[in-house]
Design a protein around this nucleic acid. Structure first.
Length: 508
RNA sequence: GGCCUUGUGGUGCAGUGGAAGCACGCCGCCCUUUCAAGGCGGAGCCGCGGGUUCAAUUCCCGCCAAGGCUACCA
């Protein structure tokens, strides 16, 4: 029997990281068994489903590098329409439940249950009779039994106010059966409801699929990862910073009357804040590589059994086994993800890093590209490759490269330690070395490095740091930068002299 | 409240009826022009209480905690 799996998100928002893992596992299982993966959009919630979400989900899955055999055509993103029935892939379409409803697929089966007395009308909705004990087997969680007394008759077709559409329970059951799905791989939140699906399968005369429920992915504090986390983080930062509400939307947001993501993002931008990544698009924006995201989430609730942690899609497909899926919810550890990402970035061919960084900056940091210029960008990328956790790290750490001279703020501790301590020892070095720099006419990293080295020897200073650290404070306001040679070269002679002068003026 | 599920260091995962491993993090030292990286070393875990057993982290029961479901949301 050919394996058929499906990923069936409801298009009510962007693709969540948990959804991405579900998709990844369904994908890996299908590929491992040379089966089929179906992408089906469950848009039976009229009020919340949007075409933008559909496009977002297709876009995010594609970015991750996951493909599917049946469902909306990914090419529809290039100016097409994913809802266009003729362009959808596969024999079991359409793949939008709204379209399937329009075709009368669900109504016909609801009527059948009604005719057989297995369902009944109540007000203008239809309820299914749950009148017996139900047992089913889950590949991960094992045998589950639910007593009839704990079950209630549930709605399978909504009334007028729900547009007479099928409910989630009815539509999934019907579609999985009609599409020939053999393995239903989905989040654990559906485990309890599976008794409903099992009962429905039996009543409709469908074979039951294999159910595979995946443990949930949680926040570091144990709460469920959700979009609201972004709102919470932004609100806290805004209140801490004493931000005044700019408009009604923001006022409502700060008063906890709304969790509008757009407002959260606006606040984050204003405060140079990175919101917790929740959706796939957030991880992309933060500069994580798709391969690393996939690798990391594959390890949440699954492992290959031999201790291997770093792997790509090929390895996953080869080793994927439902038996190795755990039952425990796992907490998402951004620190570990960042480490994975940093390693991959550091080990990458420099040319590859540069092109990825350029791509990221083109989308998210165009101002850096403009200010650095082509040759500046080369140096910048080289300087930060080994220091980057994400493709956005260089922008965060290297802001001093693109800001104006008078935006540099001097950190007290750094100033004290490197400039004013010991009667202004560092400040003196800075003043003296400024004259050396002023005479330098070969402004390259190598010769600047040599200049510092010989100056250190000539003045019998402790080590290069005696010169480099005061320079760092003058250039950045802090004591941290990439290697001093490239840093000075990239900043350029005029800027370097300006910043030294300003530093001496402000600090001295 | 009822029902379902889960419970190994801070986190993610291994593992076993016979002195608990890996990865990330954390701490210290080394290297070093700062940071990062790297090298070396270290702290820290089987939720609690009963039972079965010569022996329980592992099997059984109870408790507790966490998550889920209990919607005309999915």
């Amino acid at each position: 029997m050919t394996v058929v799996t499906r990923f069936a998100p409801s298009p009510t928002g962007n693709l969540h990281i948990g959804g991405a893992r579900t998709a990844l596992f369904a994908w890996a299982f299908a590929r491992k068994h040379s089966g089929q993966l179906i992408l089906r959009l469950e848009d039976t919630d009229l009020a919340r489903s949007t075409p933008q979400s559909t496009r977002g989900i297709i876009r995010d899955l594609t970015w991750l590098g996951l493909d599917w055999d049946q469902g909306p055509n990914p090419k529809s993103l290039d100016g097409g329409d994913p809802y266009d029935r003729s362009s959808q892939l596969g024999e079991h379409g359409p793949y939008f439940q709204s379209q399937r409803h329009a075709d009368g697929i669900y109504d016909k089966l609801v009527q059948k249950l009604l005719d057989e007395g297995k369902a009944y009308e109540e007000d203008d909705a239809v309820r299914f009779r749950m009148d017996r004990d139900i047992a089913f087997d889950d590949v991960v969680y094992g045998h589950i039994e639910v007593k009839a007394a704990d079950l209630e008759d549930f709605i399978i077709r909504k009334g007028e106010k729900g547009g007479k559409l099928p409910t989630f329970h009815f539509a999934v059951t019907v579609d999985d059966a009609l599409m020939g799905v053999t393995h239903v791989i989905r989040g654990q939140e559906h485990l309890t409801n599976t008794s409903k699906h099992a009962a429905l399968c039996d009543a409709l005369g469908f074979d039951r699929p294999q159910w595979v429920h995946l443990p949930s992915i949680m926040n570091a504090d144990g709460s469920k990862m959700s979009k609201r986390d972004k709102a919470k983080a932004a609100r806290k930062a805004a209140i801490d910073a004493g931000l005044e509400p700019a408009d009604a939307a923001m006022k409502a947001f700060l008063n906890k009357e709304s969790d509008d993501t757009k407002v959260a993002e606006a606040i984050a931008q204003q405060l140079h804040l990175t919101l917790p990544e929740i959706e796939v698009a957030d991880f992309k924006r933060s500069g994580y590589l798709q391969g690393v995201v996939l690798n990391y989430i594959a390890l949440l609730g699954w492992n290959p059994g031999d201790g291997t942690e770093r792997f790509g899609l090929d390895f996953l497909v080869e080793h994927f086994d439902l038996k190795r899926i755990g039952k425990k919810n796992s907490q998402f550890d951004r620190v570990k993800l960042a480490k994975f990402n940093a390693e991959v970035l550091a080990e990458m061919e420099p040319a590859k890093f540069k092109s990825l960084l350029k791509e990221h900056f083109t989308t998210y940091r165009p101002d850096y590209l403009e200010k650095l210029g082509d040759s500046g960008f080369e140096l910048f990328a080289t300087a930060y490759q080994a220091r980057s956790q994400t493709l956005d790290t260089p922008a965060e750490l290297g802001r001093f490269f693109v800001c104006s001279d008078d935006e540099i703020e001097y950190n007290d501790k750094a100033v004290k330690k490197n400039l004013t301590k010991n009667d202004g020892e560092g400040l003196n070095v800075l003043k003296q070395f400024r004259e050396v720099l002023a005479k330098c006419d070969d402004w390259t990293a190598d010769s600047l490095h040599d200049l510092i080295e010989s100056f250190t020897a000539e003045k019998e200073l402790k080590n290069m740091g005696s010169v480099a650290q005061p320079l760092r404070v003058a250039m950045t306001g802090n004591a941290v930068s990439p290697e001093i040679g490239p840093t000075l070269e990239l900043l350029g002679k005029q800027t370097v002299l300006n910043r030294i002068d300003r530093c001496i003026r402000e600090v001295g």
